Simulated assay, not measured.
Amino acid sequence: MSSTEQLESEIAELIVETLNLEDINASDINFDEPLFYDGLGLDSIDSLELSMALSAQYGFQLKSDGANNKEIFSSIRSLAKHVKLNKV
């Protein structure tokens, strides 16, 4: 498993644990699947909780008014790319 795939798996686990997604296993999540609406069905409250968890886990801040948030939070794969570029 590459370091990118490992990071994507870690983020999937973080999402499931942080948001208490009881009916979803991290290993069943498609990393390209949208996180909001038709994909995992997350909402704005979930994005706030996830932002805080990512900040705590990887040591950087995601701003609520960030210009690229829609792209960053579009999928686990895009989140992993952002984390990889910004983690401390």
Rank of each mutant, 00 (worst) to 15 (best):
M1V: 10
L40P: 01
L42D: 01
A56K: 13
E5L: 13
M1F: 13
T18F: 13
L21S: 13
D43I: 11
K70H: 09
K84G: 04
L14G: 06
K84C: 07
A53T: 03
G59C: 06
V16T: 12
K63M: 08
S74F: 02
G39M: 02
A26G: 10
Q6E: 10
L62S: 03
I72C: 03
L85P: 00
I45G: 00
V88I: 13
D46V: 02
G41K: 04
S51L: 02
D43E: 14
Y37H: 06
Y37K: 09
D32Q: 12
E49K: 12
V88H: 12
G66N: 07
S2G: 15
D65W: 03
S55D: 03
V16Y: 03
K70V: 08
E22F: 04
G66H: 14
I76T: 07
L7T: 05
K87E: 13
A26P: 10
F31E: 04
Q6R: 14
S78G: 01
Y58M: 03
A53C: 03
D43S: 05
E10H: 14
F31H: 11
Q57A: 15
G39W: 03
E49M: 06
D46W: 02
G66K: 04
Q6L: 12
I29V: 12
S2N: 15
D43L: 08
V88Y: 06
L50V: 04
N69D: 12
H82K: 11
M52E: 05
N25F: 11
A67C: 00
D32H: 11
N86Q: 11
I24H: 12
A67P: 03
E8A: 05
V16F: 03
K87P: 00
S55I: 02
A80W: 02
I15L: 15
H82I: 04
R77K: 15
K81R: 10
A26C: 11
E8T: 02
E8S: 03
Q61P: 00
S2C: 14
I15C: 09
M52V: 12
S9D: 09
S2T: 13
L62A: 03
S2W: 01
E71M: 08
N86C: 13
H82M: 04
D23H: 13
A80D: 05
D28W: 06
I45K: 02
K84Y: 10
I11T: 11
F73W: 09
E71A: 09
L79C: 06
S47R: 11
K70I: 08
I72H: 07
S2M: 10
